[in-house]
Computed example of a mutant assay.
Amino acid sequence: MKKNHKNSASRKEDTSVYTVKEPMELLPFLLEMMSKSSRNSMKSILTRGQVTVNGKMVTQHNHPLQAGQHVEILKNRAAMKEETLVGVTILHEDDDIIVINKEAGLLSVASKNPEDMTAYRQLMDYVKETNPRNRVYVVHRLDRDTSGVMLFAKNEEVKNGLQAAWNEVVKERTYTALVEGAVRKKEGTISSWLKESKTFKVYSNPTDNGGQHAVTHYKKLQSNSNYSLLEVQLETGRKNQIRVHMEDIGHPIVGDKKYGSSVNPIKRIGLHATALALLHPRTGELVRFKADVPSSLISKSK
């Protein structure tokens, strides 16, 4: 007769299987079983979908465990999946959403060439590795040369719900912008109407020109005689809004030739989506995702 140890582990090449002896939450259980791992690393393992309970993937930290259940940690699966992603780092993943940090230069979605490695196509391949029926859905976009936080839905119902109530659901959209020149004001607000031309350039007007009203708040973080680093909060989310509004105040975003920049020392547009906070589509809880500001933006404005 096989003994049922308190928390027995049987190992295969790239997995560890643990048997639960007494009821407890998943994260504390994992920390107890893998005492050499840090809390953050265990959270990452959960987030990346490397943990299954009785064969079903679980990402929730507080998932309740019952005696007799088997918890399996697939050590290399997620690591191998993520190694195939280029220009994309997964910040968070659960049953409803997947949040990434997109590098500058990578298309978010649209591409005429089916071979182009857009963030969307890569994530579609990523989720299908777990189940061929899995999909991701576009909720919002970032310009190709803008880096930072970007959110996708994992089912159509969540996508439609987020898009329909985007302005109510999203509580924070913070960007970091490296702009030309020394911005004098410590903070300010830009308000104008934006309208896109037939050549796909967005134009700004201080009065209603039939376009969309746009409001941008900014705060100076640091600056020198050549460049300033700004924290930018979007009150509205219009196409190219920050880029147009920075040109409006005479401080175009570094590298943004389309909207007035004449220099490009960092070989990219100096705009980064730093944080996104929203009410989670399933739980209603406020969740916040953050992507570190690239060092090239910070160093140029010191």
Rank of each mutant, 00 (worst) to 15 (best):
T174N: 15
A79Y: 09
Q66W: 00
A273D: 07
T47Y: 05
V287P: 13
K186A: 07
H140G: 04
S10M: 14
I90Q: 00
E168Q: 15
L27H: 13
F29E: 06
S228G: 11
L297C: 11
I249W: 04
K21Q: 08
H245L: 03
A291W: 03
S108R: 06
E13M: 13
P23G: 11
A110L: 11
R238I: 05
S111Q: 04
Y175Q: 09
T15H: 05
G210H: 11
D14F: 05
S301A: 15
N209V: 10
K258I: 11
R39P: 07
S197V: 09
I253S: 07
D14I: 13
I190L: 14
Y120H: 12
W193Q: 04
K56E: 11
K102D: 06
W193K: 08
D248I: 13
M33C: 15
N240C: 03
E115F: 14
N4K: 12
L278K: 01
V202K: 05
L229I: 03
S41Y: 15
K220D: 02
E172A: 07
L178R: 02
V71W: 00
K112A: 00
Y175S: 04
I269A: 03
V138Q: 00
F289P: 08
K56F: 12
D96H: 10
I253A: 07
H213L: 15
T207L: 10
D116K: 05
A277F: 10
R282Y: 03
M34I: 06
D143W: 02
I253R: 02
N4R: 15
D95M: 05
D208N: 14
Y259P: 08
K185I: 05
E83N: 08
V179C: 01
L106P: 02
D208P: 00
Y126L: 00
I100A: 05
I98C: 01
S204C: 14
S204K: 08
L151N: 09
T84I: 05
E235Q: 11
V202Y: 08
F152C: 06
M34A: 07
E247Q: 15
G210W: 14
P294V: 14
